[in-house]
Design a protein around this nucleic acid. Structure first.
Length: 430
DNA sequence: CCTCCACCGGAACGTGAGGAGT
DNA sequence: ACTCCTCACGTTCCGGTGGAGG
């Protein structure tokens, strides 16, 4: 793809290559960039050293080492929450196994598939075949033909093939047929051997599996506990050494990133995101150093991104409901009851020509928004005046407004303040 | 102490979309 | 092409409830 660009060399590039004005760029790069290598701060990067995962690495290596003796390694299931290093460990051990296998002349192939993207039997088999240079169209063939193609492809040579199925629970949701086929493929092979590594953050996903698949897949299980703040610190230190220029991180930066991430069930991914974004923010404002302030900004930015994404993808009625809550909020009312919110919601529906949902359904939607952390709904007893939920927004008001109004349907309600007046009027009637 | 408000939330059922089986 | 099944989303019905006010 990108190679065609090389045929045309931009004058600037010539300048740099000739060294004519390279210095001004050098200076720019050296003085302004706080990063040495931003890639290592991404969670997609597989580091050479994984702090506090020695035990898991050892377990996995012990299981896979069977491959080097020419045996078939047991299938493995790896459990752990997001950001506990499951993928990194699996890829790391896989890479090492391939290396050692190459040196000892024992061919090992480790194939990594992320089942969130490759989420059907067909796609899994097509991708596996592609790894062995078989030309399988991404769609069109009968599934069993692809299966045979793959089987023939791997059985050409004596080799151990290890398939890492990341986020395997996503695959299971669409049926466990692939897993059934893959887990018993060995009985149909002459030369090659296949073993599976499943990675899941859902501990209970095997409940949905066929018992035969479950026992075959879960021959070995490794659990990844969450990192604590201290361990996260070590991980960040390690990456920061490679990712940042020396001395650009204030002392408090890494501990603070670690602390934030530790609150979120010890998610190393989150910790790395915080650190990288803090660095980007510092760089953008031309600061010499990354400080705790930047980490807090990064935390806010991540939280904001999450909220915007959540609100954007909300179903229509939830948006209208949230719109109603915002109507109260922008008048400084932060203890609206569900009944009041419902009445405004009905007005919003009328205004947009949409059939309103029933109050029962709306209580469920309210609970959903509560779970998502967008609003808080707490049950209060007003004695004589009944029992209800008091509802208020728990995210920044202005941002919520603008996200809601970016929906073309809600923007028909016109400018927010005029809509507000209209609904305020309704409120006073009641 | 009893009532009764204004809603909560469980249970059962209806409906349409989408996938699997044949 | 057809049926059958499942699942998400909604509705209807209804029993339940903590405390202000009588």
């Amino acid at each position: 793809m990108g190679t065609s660009h090389l045929h045309y060399i931009h004058p600037f590039v010539v300048m740099i290559m000739s060294g004519a004005s390279g210095s001004i760029f050098d200076e720019f790069i050296n003085t302004k960039s706080l990063f040495l290598n931003k890639e290592v701060l991404r969670h997609s990067y597989t580091p050479d050293y994984l702090p506090h995962r020695d035990e898991q690495i050892k377990s996995l290596a012990a299981i896979l080492s069977a491959a080097l003796r020419g045996e078939t390694p047991s299938n493995v299931l790896i459990y752990g929450k997001t950001g506990t290093g499951k993928t990194a460990v699996a890829r790391y051990v896989g890479k090492e196994l391939e290396n050692v296998g190459r040196n000892r002349n024992v061919p090992c192939h480790v194939i990594y598939l992320n089942c969130e993207i490759i989420d059907t039997q067909y796609r899994v088999l097509a991708n596996l075949s592609k790894y062995f240079n078989r030309d399988v169209p991404m769609t069109g063939w009968p599934t069993d033909q692809v299966y045979h193609e793959f089987k023939n492809a791997i059985d050409q040579n004596k080799a151990v093939i290890i398939i890492i199925l990341d986020e395997i629970d996503k695959l299971v949701r669409k049926g466990d047929e692939v897993l059934y086929n893959l887990s018993r493929i060995n009985s149909e092979l002459e030369n090659a051997r296949v073993s599976l590594i499943g990675i899941s953050n859902d501990l209970k996903f095997t409940d949905y599996l066929d018992p035969r698949v479950r026992s075959s897949l879960g021959e070995e299980e490794i659990v990844f506990p969450p990192y604590d703040a201290h361990q996260l610190r070590d991980i960040l230190e390690e990456r920061a050494k490679l990712g940042f220029r020396e001395g650009v991180l204030d002392d408090g930066v890494i501990p603070l990133c670690a602390a934030f991430a530790a609150q979120e069930h010890g998610d190393a991914r989150k910790a790395l995101d915080l650190l990288r974004i803090a660095g980007e923010l510092a760089e953008r404002e031309g600061a010499e150093k990354v400080t705790e302030k930047h980490v807090r900004m990064a935390q806010e930015k991540l939280e904001m991104d999450r909220i915007v994404e959540v609100i954007k993808t909300l179903p229509m009625h939830s948006k209208m409901l949230l719109f109603s809550v915002v109507c109260f909020e922008s008048q400084g009312i932060s203890n609206a009851t569900s009944g009041e919110v419902y009445r405004v919601y009905r007005e919003v529906c009328r205004e947009l020509g949409v059939e309103p949902l029933t109050p029962r359904r709306i209580t469920d939607l309210i609970s959903e928004l509560d779970m998502l952390g967008i609003i808080s709904a707490k049950i209060v007893n007003k004695g004589r005046y009944g029992r209800t939920k008091e509802i208020h927004l728990t995210v920044p008001l202005e941002s919520t407004k603008s996200v809601l109004l970016s929906d073309y349907r809600l923007s028909q309600l016109g400018d927010f303040s005029s809509a507000r007046k209209k609904f305020t009027f309704q409120l006073h009637l009641q």
